[in-house]
Design a binder for these strands. Structure first.
Lengths: 350, 350
DNA sequence: TCACTTCATCGAACCGGTTCGGCGAAGCTA
DNA sequence: TAGCTTCGCCGAACCGGTTCGATGAAGTGA
């Protein structure tokens, strides 16, 4: 079941079999057919390890994803799925690497032992030693997210600043004046997660621009924290009429808190944010939100990585996406007057 | 940066370096230290491909997971995460394989090209050709789920029959007489997905045993389908007072539909089912449900697989889990009387 | 001092592919 | 028919590890 066996049965040399299968040198039609027939009969497939050893490429890309300790979000699952599918389309396999407690160890496995040709990194921080490390090694990698120095790297990212700002403008256009911001957990913000930072920035600046009164909160990645956070918001400023959130996992809790407080969405209170569409559609009423195009990000990351692998030395490229806000049913005008949702915005946010 | 370079710098032969690092033959303390020093200085790590080629083991396991076409559930993400972590603990990497449209192709990659030492299969069907195929090849694999012939294989699974039955008994104990069942999509049921089949079985039998009036529904894996399904349920039998669901993704829609119909949970209507705890806690009120121990299933699957890899020829083993129902806030006595949730059940379901 | 064991190390073969240089036969030109 | 090119294939080396058998030096006992 190795190439020598095929060669023997087809009555040719091993190299001829190799060339017949790879097409890298011409082989007479006659012998090619003979070899192919033997291959088909025996169901022969070349060993990935041997091939990787010989030509120095594993046809595998590493996906460095956050440890299980963090709660996974729907977004991350969509990333993984789309990365795997896109990679398969380019004939690459995907090796998962937990960048968990012992992240050095798994990095050593991926890079040191040369298990992968390139890597895709998730959950980027503004100052990210992993990104710096890979850049220093000139190892082909693409980040899903921007560091503080995005010009130097390969990445695909979401314009969290613009998205959070768009949410603010949307609410301001609806007449809301007192708005709260529900961020990811404080621990992640302190660790420098880019979405938490840039989202907060975008929110703060846009709110200042529109002269809104705001409060910002960090909130654990679970429903209970969301509910507690909302109670805190209403306690701190009962006149709050809207929230913007980046926290998918807390969303259910926010809604729960509003229900408990007797605030009807969207009549008494508006909710919006940056959330994967699948989650935005899960809650009732469905969330008006900037839909995170997770699958597209994953696909584009793979495309960039494959491009980088095919053209070593190419100059850095990136994609910054800013999807429009999808109007659903969770926002309405401030003041409780109920009129049609589809009014014309006075500020362009899509 | 290969073993020859290390050998040269340490003034020994390649084989000595290999033995010093693997410990498979004694090496004098003196030379061992010298080799180790060179290794540390250069940050040498042996190439995974070369090692795999030489000793025939890749230290990688394949995780065959459903295509992105299906909506991913929180459960699946937890599987993936726990499998990766458990594999890392055993010094294995995890290669993702989409068992999608072109599942033969990715199987060929995994097995034919010998990229993995073993495999873990998700989303098992009662009659599953993948399981049969791997069993016929005697390829080390562990299924997360049981086929119709579980005695022959290696698997970890959830006792969906018992879990669905426990939900029925729970509702019956609360006095519910007219109960609906919300299954996964019809397409999956027809395809023979075991959770859909066994869950339906358990529900039906337990309901018959308790003399309940039931209706069963299939429902798409998304919120909109869930809402539509609930409307259908109330249309078909407005006297329905409870549902049991296996469909995580439809849960939000079911709640939405109930809210829209003006049925208060749990006062007017009870909801329960088999759902990962993270999702059960997301909805308001939190779902009383049999929590799917996804992380534990993943971990156990890896443990079984590693055991099988370490002891070829061992006889099949498996784990069948039946977690208890976690009482939360989505079920209450039939008839709308509101009393404390924590009453003593008359039927043992935990 | 010689025969025998033990210990540390080496050289070579092997895993299963890829790739380079070369060689003989056939085809073409003169 | 000699000389040259082209075509199709072969043999050998190589990728970077692991492993087996052998070898020489040191240690042991008679």
């Amino acid at each position: 079941m190795n190439i020598g066996e095929i060669a023997r049965r087809a009555g040719v040399s091993r190299s001829t079999v190799s060339y017949a299968l790879s097409g890298k040198r011409p082989v007479s039609e006659d012998t090619r057919r003979r070899i192919q027939q033997v291959v088909d009969e025996l169901g022969y497939r070349p060993s990935a390890s041997a091939r990787a050893l010989a030509n120095g490429r594993t046809s595998t890309i590493g996906l460095v994803f956050p440890p299980a300790g963090n709660h996974y979000t729907g977004m991350q699952l969509d990333f993984i799925g789309s990365v795997v599918e896109a990679a398969a389309a380019h004939d690459y396999d995907v090796l998962l690497s937990p960048s968990g407690v012992d992240s050095d160890r798994s990095f050593q496995r991926l890079l040191g032992e040369r298990r992968v040709d390139g890597a895709i990194l998730m959950e980027i921080r503004l100052e990210d030693d992993r990104v710096d490390h890979l850049a220093a090694l000139d190892f082909p990698a693409v980040a899903i997210g921007r560091t503080a120095h995005p010009e130097r790297g390969w990445w695909v990212g979401l314009d969290h600043t613009a998205l959070a700002a768009a949410c603010v403008h949307h609410l301001a256009d609806l007449g809301h004046r007192r708005v709260a911001f529900v961020n990811r957990p404080e621990q992640l913000l302190r660790a420098g997660y880019e979405s938490a930072h840039r989202g907060l920035d975008g929110f703060t600046k846009a709110a200042a621009e529109r002269g809104l009164t705001v409060r910002t909160y960090c909130c654990g990645d679970d429903a209970a924290s969301g509910q507690a956070c909302l109670e805190q918001i209403l306690h701190d400023d009962p006149a709050t009429t809207a929230v913007v959130t980046l926290n998918e996992a807390a969303l259910g809790g926010l809604y729960g808190g509003l229900a408990k407080a007797g605030r009807h969405v969207p009549r008494d209170f508006s909710v919006t944010g940056v959330v994967a569409s699948r989650w935005a559609e899960t809650v009732t009423p469905q969330l008006t939100a900037a839909d995170v195009p997770a699958a597209e990000l994953g696909r584009r990351a793979v495309d960039l990585l494959v491009e980088r692998l095919d053209h070593p030395g190419a100059s850095p490229r990136h994609h910054l996406l800013a999807p429009p806000i999808s109007l659903r049913a969770s926002t309405g005008p401030a003041g409780g007057t109920s009129f049609a949702q589809a009014q014309t915005p006075t500020h362009p946010y899509s």
